Amino acid sequence: MPNGKPAGERCVQLKDDNLCRLFGQPSRPKVCLQFRPCADVCGDSSEQAIWRITELEAATSL
């Protein structure tokens, strides 16, 4: 996403199974390489992770 990913918008590199198409590739963005999932951010399920990350994006995009 050349101009960055807007809050609440799904990354274009996520496949239907929520895995990244760029995982392990040199073109993977630095922000993705540095992200370390943890329970505080991701919760206990994919649904919780999506909700929490969406909330964090909305709170930090003001």
Rank of each mutant, 00 (worst) to 15 (best):
V12G: 10
L14R: 06
F23S: 05
A58D: 06
C32V: 13
R10L: 06
P37V: 09
R21M: 04
F35V: 06
A7V: 01
L22K: 05
Q34S: 12
G43I: 01
D16S: 12
A7I: 00
V41K: 13
R52T: 05
F23C: 03
C38L: 03
V31Q: 08
P26D: 15
Q34P: 02
C11S: 09
L22V: 08
L56D: 04
G24H: 09
R28F: 05
P37Y: 07
L62T: 09
L14N: 02
D16W: 06
G4V: 06
N3Y: 15
A49N: 03
D17M: 01
S61F: 03
L19Y: 11
C32N: 04
K15I: 01
L62C: 10
P26F: 03
D16Y: 02
M1S: 14
T54A: 11
C42S: 11
V31N: 10
G8P: 00
C20S: 04
A58V: 07
N18M: 12
N18H: 09
R21K: 14
S27C: 05
K5P: 01
P37H: 05
E47M: 11
K15C: 02
N3L: 14
K30Y: 08
C42F: 04
Q48M: 15
M1N: 14
G4E: 09
S45P: 10
R21S: 14
P37F: 09
P37D: 05
K30L: 13
G43N: 07
D16A: 15
G24D: 08
P29K: 07
L19S: 14
E57K: 00
T60P: 00
S61R: 08
K5T: 05
L56N: 13
R52Y: 02
N3V: 13
G8Y: 00
R28T: 07
R10V: 05
R36W: 03
L33R: 15
Q34V: 10
V12H: 08
G43V: 00
R21F: 01
L33M: 14
P2K: 12
V12T: 13
E9R: 11
E57D: 14
V41P: 00
E9M: 13
G8N: 02
P37R: 08
C11M: 03
P26S: 11
G8H: 04
V12F: 05
R10H: 07
T60Y: 06
Q34M: 15
L22H: 01
L22T: 02
